[in-house]
Write a protein that binds this DNA or RNA. Structure first.
Lengths: 226, 226
DNA sequence: TGTACATCAGTGAACGCGCGTTCACTGATGTAC
DNA sequence: TGTACATCAGTGAACGCGCGTTCACTGATGTAC
């Protein structure tokens, strides 16, 4: 993939020092999304991918950790925006919750490397401290609020836990789903949407049939894996 | 910890070549349990921990992967046995299920490094293929059976999913709980037993109060983290 | 009882590799006079 | 229009490190005669 036999790269003209910076971000993002083990990404790999000397990176980032944090921040914001966008067209509290959760799970399964890095705590802490990006807590906030809204509306008592705990449990359920789905591909997984539907039905007390329709509306194409 | 200033180690006497092998397993197990990132364990670290030349390991294992697989197999069997033992003294299907699940979650939280390695897919696949140990599937089998037994007994319809899917969902919920609990220690976590209780209540349809008693009987001491 | 020999358990030095980081440098492009 | 100079964007070689793996070896212990 990186076996470019091209002539040694031409330097950017004077005013355009930012060009390489953008290329570095792009290359690091591509590698983080592509590598089997994104946590092993090295500075020299990024330099090779761009076709530049390893030392060149230091002109734009203090070290590899800064570059990775930059990329992860972008991915995190992308996920948050996708969830908000999906929820924006929801017609009620339940649709809002389903939109957020289904988007979360689909993104996690579509981006296993980034998901494990962002949420799964796979990056070495010295490179990417937990507080570098939201690491899920802000997403969790929106899910908690949305779930509380559903439970309040229906007055259906699924359980007596406070909103915080109920939201946390829903998040952990979704995370476990995505994490095992990504890491244990050898299991005979049912369609992802079925699992999302059942999980949301359990945690809201709403009938699965109703939720299934909303889930399909969010990500209709997701069936069996491979 | 490994700063032993002792004299260079004495070789084992003739018949006892297995002594070093045991020490290697012990040291690797200790390091896997102790390291912040067990997946970065190296052959030379193990050799240093034992106080032996790196090359000595090759007399007992073909490579580091074989040693690690050996240790992980032991940990996996230990967990399976703990779950079976806990279930052995259960007085009914629900107690059986609670015993298995609570033991699983407590073990995962007590052994974050090994849990992430065994179940969380943290080890490089070329060192530890998913099929090397059960990787959770056998544990999953016992949970599926136990859950099916509970749901059949009470004839309470929690949902229409088949046993396989219901068991899988319970497992993913427990895994998400353990994984996030371990990786996101900065969150204000409720007591672990409360989360286990609520999860089991959701997935069985049994009242939380009844389950809470059973959970406390399995692991009474587990309160807030730290 | 003595001695030559085999085996066992592990050593120590060396190899080539990829890594992060440093440092003096280069060479094209713009700017001042 | 010409030329000296500054700056920008990145280079290339080198460093020391820890790693997995190899290979000939060592030195104590047992065994055969």
């Amino acid at each position: 993939m990186t076996d470019e036999r091209t002539a040694p790269r031409r330097r950017n003209p004077r005013g355009q020092g930012e060009t390489l910076k953008a290329e570095l971000v792009e290359a690091a993002a591509r590698l983080l999304a592509t590598l089997d083990r994104p946590e092993t990404l090295t500075l020299r790999q990024v330099a090779r991918e761009v076709g530049v000397a390893p030392a060149s990176i230091y002109s734009h980032f203090p070290d590899l950790g800064a570059l990775i944090r930059h990329v992860l921040r972008l991915r995190y914001e992308e996920l948050a925006r996708l969830m908000d966008d999906a929820a924006a067209s929801a017609t009620g509290p339940l649709a809002d919750l389903v939109a957020r959760c289904a988007t979360y799970a689909h993104w996690g399964v579509a981006h296993p490397g980034e998901y494990g890095t962002l949420i799964g705590g796979r990056m070495p802490t010295e490179l990417v401290p937990l507080t570098a990006h939201g690491a899920g807590e802000e997403l969790l906030g929106s899910v908690i609020a949305s779930l509380a809204s559903v439970r309040q509306r229906t007055a259906r008592s699924v359980g007596p836990e406070p909103s915080w705990q109920a939201g946390l449990l829903l998040w952990t359920a979704l995370h476990g789903l995505v994490a095992l789905y990504n890491d244990h591909g050898n299991l005979p997984w049912p369609p992802l949407n079925d699992l999302i539907t059942d999980t949301l039905s359990l945690h809201t007390g709403e009938p699965a049939a109703e939720i299934a329709k909303l889930v399909e509306a969010v990500g209709p194409s997701s069936g069996h894996r491979a």
